[in-house]
């Protein structure tokens, strides 16, 4: 009656302890970074960074673009590895999973590069 699910297929290692470690390490790191990101973006000065001039002035400190790029890389890694975990719950075939992996890697690299470029452009304008 249920032969197809009685034979436990060989478990696929689409997820493993190292990938999971990435999520559990980036998680707490994000809590710290997002607090910093939030405090500096919304509580600096009177009401936070509201105008273009505010943002450029804020990015003149070389530590700031560094911190924001680190934050971006961490948040992109956490969110895309988490999204992959949700997709894995949908039991993608081996081929689809490979495509998903490449797509997520591409999106991740593109997002981090774009964000880093933006941060450095703003920093160079001060």
């Amino acid at each position: 009656m249920s032969a197809e699910i009685r034979n436990t297929s060989a478990p696929r290692s689409g997820e493993n302890s190292w990938l999971w470690l990435v999520k559990i390490v980036t998680g707490p790191l994000l809590i710290i970074l997002i607090l910093v990101h939030f405090i500096v973006n919304h509580f600096i000065g009177q009401n936070g960074l509201l105008t273009y001039a505010d943002v450029v002035a804020y990015y003149s400190n070389p530590l700031i673009p560094l911190m924001e790029i680190l934050f971006l890389a961490t948040v992109v890694t956490h969110s895309l590895s988490g999204l992959r975990g949700i997709i894995l719950d949908l039991k993608p075939s081996r081929g689809v999973l490979t495509a998903v992996d490449w797509l997520l890697a591409l999106v991740g690299v593109a997002a981090i590069s774009y964000g880093a470029w933006l941060a450095l452009v703003i920093a160079s304008r001060s």
């Binding site: 478990p11 696929r12 997820e15 493993n16």
Partner: peptide, 12 residues
């Protein structure tokens, strides 16, 4: 280890 350290094991 090979059975449970997988997507269909512990990490689901």
């Amino acid at each position: 280890l090979g059975l449970v350290d997988t997507e269909d094991g512990l990490w689901r």
